[in-house]
Amino acid sequence: MTRSSTVRRAPLLALYATFVFAFIYLPIVVLVVYSFNRDGVGGFPPRHFTLGWYTVLFADSSIWNSVLNSLIVAAASVALSLGLGLLAALALDRAGFPGKSLFRRLVLLPLILPGIITGLSLLMFAVFSGLHPSLATVFLGHATALISVATTELFAGLQKLDRAQEEASLDLGATPWQTFWRITLPNLKLSLIAAGLLIFTLSMDEIAVTFFLIGRDNTLPLEIWARLRRGITPEINAISTLIFVSSVALLVIWYHLRARSLGARSPEFLEQLGETS
């Protein structure tokens, strides 16, 4: 008997699943539709299709400044958390040191703890060490919190790595340094790219930690946040639609990369949430 013939039909359950999908996607659909509505957010049905809100958005320099700020913070966070996450993953995979299991749990804490705690603890640290809230402190917060994601993704990559290749390289006279650059790193390429994309997305979207560390220059989510206090306009729908489209684009890249070697799967850190606490 093949698998597919054992699949039994369950119409009620299928209906319920459709309902859940509708619940998950309805807000996103509404958001996108109303970004093209001339008469603003709300009212039903939406009438008068317009691209006007996108025109307003593209002329809005403070939004684009905040996008630039977010891109800078995200790029810097990717670089730093990937670097430190790689070392942390190597350390967890290969080195024994006192407090190793404590370290493993500590690195993962920002994933599991409410963002407000990580945010205000870093605010206290900034005040304590005389740093002024700015994009630099935001970067510090993002990079530190996201080491957790880099470490889980790269540790999973290392676990799948074929140790024999490294042993062979060392036996054949390569230095540990050469082995690292020529064997370890190329084998981790996919995990590195995947973790990088994930960290980039999470940093672009981060609010809870940023909230406490932001100075005069806003990141994109904080700029949107500030505008929401003044009331809602379809311009926010327009930028939200663009954020949605870019997130999905990054996700498609992710799946493409993952599917090539491992079969498409969800991010490692999500799978480990239940296990690593």
Binding site: I24, P27, I28, D205, I224, I232, I243, F244, S247, L251
Partner: peptide
């Protein structure tokens, strides 16, 4: 099911506000 996980928390919260 995974796609929404990648979509901004703020974007989704804002969508509910407009609804």
């Amino acid at each position: 099911v995974i796609v929404p996980l990648w979509v901004s928390y703020l974007v989704r919260g804002y969508a509910w506000k407009t609804i």
